[in-house]
Design a protein around this nucleic acid. Structure first.
Length: 483
RNA sequence: GCGGGAGUAAUUCAGUGGCAGAAUGUCAGCUUCCCAAGCUGAACGUCGCGGGUUCGAGUCCCGUCUCCCGCUCCA
């Protein structure tokens, strides 16, 4: 894990997120509910921007990717085909050494011990003595546990096993199941991809680290279908594409890493997997997994559905089941990374004057601010993802001319960007409020505005002001980086 | 899942069995020609929730939920 100079504590970050309206604890009115979180006004905008940045990069600006929005609840057989239902009813054992998972009754079988019929699904079944991992031979096995990580529900009013269904634990299966329909309507040729953003649900044993591991979360997944044999080249391509994208939304390059799975860590059907990790305050953790999954998923669905999912390649005149490379990102984890990246505390001058460049110093933890300086908290979001792009103020609220003029400018700018208008309290307070919201620019209407139609544009990071005429504001703000 | 710590206003926290508090923030007004200024006023709490002990519980006991830390786990 590479260093970051000053890590915010997760408590500080959570306090700011709640105070400013990024993230609230779920169902807080009733004492909260473990593993569920709500996004407030600012968090919602932030999340929208992240989704849109992904959709733009992955779908809108590409010729070879189309979108899909599939249902959260799917036919239960989908999860048998995908392998997710395995372990839902049977106790499972994990090998700590090679990360593979087995039904506990198989371990008995391997040792030549016969189990009574019906005891296969017995949740009290213990690990047999002398149990070894059937693959790597290790004794490092976990105790048997039920792996019902899918949320179960019922379709229709009767709560009968035959009506059981599951909230999807990943969005990817919707893509595989609709592969053939999308292919036939989109006139896509391999290589091409199908992208989807949506909620997924996992009944995690132990949600931790703020929103990092939640029971309800949002995924952005691409399934990129390729010609067999080109897996490695496309896998490399997508890892690099995705890293570029993370840098583009403002995550520093030296906080991002690749975790390359060793052969023994890979799922049996995967030929490669790279996690893109971010240096969170609680350690380097996965934002996205990019996996080369071969033809496993489509082949399984072909097998379980009995319908052909082959692709006819006109160039070679051959049919085959496409292989797939899957970049699968967690929206909420990206949000958390952006919040961690953006959070900073600084010592800034008590007084500032238009034109001069204020001296800004990083906070030395555990010390008081030097004479004449005070602490400010800033969320340094990239303009691309900042929830509010620009705020507009009158210098004083008891001068109707200033208030009206600022309102007109606000009405104009909100046509282009998410804007905010604030007339309450002192001007400095309004600046600081926007600093905590991460707003890149604040525009102030003062008395000079009434003479020459110029306003000040205050930069969040430098706290410096420049004057521009009102008419050139959209162009200037765009030049300064507003998307 | 195990062990430890914590939960009082929006936030940070004080409150030694006897009236529910402070600072900051928020809102309104006044003031103010640019960085959380000042003045006045206001709102804000079933002290996480539920039981128990007690004349009386934020405080003691039991249970439970939530959060944090460490282990464990993590498609």
């Amino acid at each position: 894990m590479s260093g970051r100079e000053s890590k915010p504590s997760m408590e500080q970050l959570a306090a700011l997120c709640k105070r400013r309206g990024f993230i609230f604890p779920g169902s807080e009115l009733y004492g909260g509910i473990n593993g569920f979180w709500d996004y407030g006004p600012l968090g919602t905008e932030l999340k929208r921007n992240v989704r849109e940045a992904w959709w733009e990069a992955m779908v809108r600006l590409r010729d070879d990717v189309v979108g899909l929005d599939s249902a959260i609840i799917m036919h239960p057989r989908v999860w048998e085909a995908s392998g997710h239902a395995e372990g839902f009813t049977d106790p499972m054992v994990d090998c700590r050494s090679c990360r593979r998972r087995f039904r506990v009754d198989q371990l008995y079988e391997n040792l030549g011990i016969e189990l009574e019929p019906g005891s296969v699904a017995d949740m009290s079944l213990k690990l047999p003595a002398d149990a070894r991992c059937p693959v790597c031979g290790s004794r490092e096995l976990t105790e048997p546990r039920a792996f019902n990580l899918m949320f179960r529900t019922f379709v229709g009013p009767v709560e009968d096993d035959s009506a059981a269904a599951y909230l999807r634990p990943e969005t990817a299966q919707g893509i595989f199941v609709q592969f053939h329909n999308v292919l036939s309507v989109s006139r896509m040729k391999i290589p091409f991809g199908i992208a989807q953003i949506g909620k997924a649900f996992r009944n995690e044993i132990n949600p931790r680290n703020y929103t990092f591991r939640s029971r309800e979360f949002e995924q952005m997944e691409l399934e990129y279908f390729i010609k067999p044999g080109t897996d490695e080249q496309w896998h490399d391509y997508w890892v690099e594409e995705r890293l570029k994208w993370y840098r583009g939304i403002g995550l520093a390059g030296d906080h991002l890493h690749r975790y390359v799975y060793g052969k023994e860590e890979l799922a049996h059907y995967a030929s490669a997997c790279v996690d893109i990790t971010y240096d969170f305050p609680f350690g380097a953790q996965e934002l996205e997994g990019v996996a080369a999954r071969g033809d496993y998923d489509l082949r399984r669905h072909q097998e379980y559905s009995g319908k052909s999912l082959e692709y006819f390649d006109a160039e070679s005149g051959r049919s085959y089941i496409p292989h797939v490379v899957e970049p699968s990102a967690g929206v909420d984890r990206i949000i958390l990374a952006l919040l961690c990246e953006a959070y900073r505390e600084e010592w800034v001058p008590r007084e500032a004057h238009a034109g001069s460049r204020p001296e800004i110093r990083p906070v030395e933890p555990g010390t008081n601010p030097p004479e004449g300086l005070e602490k400010r908290t800033v969320m340094g979001f990239s303009p691309r993802v900042a929830p509010i792009k620009v705020a507009v103020f009158p210098l004083l609220k008891n001068r109707p001319q200033l208030v009206e003029k600022s309102r007109r400018i606000f009405e104009e700018l909100r046509q282009h960007w998410t804007a905010f208008w604030d007339i309450t309290g002192a001007i400095g307070r309004r600046y600081r409020r926007q600093d905590e919201a991460g707003t890149p620019f604040c525009i102030t209407v003062d008395f000079q505005t009434l003479d020459d139609d110029t306003v000040t544009v205050r930069d969040r990071d430098t706290m410096q002001q420049e004057r521009f005429t009102v008419s050139e504001l959209p162009r200037v703000l765009e030049q300064k980086g507003l998307p």
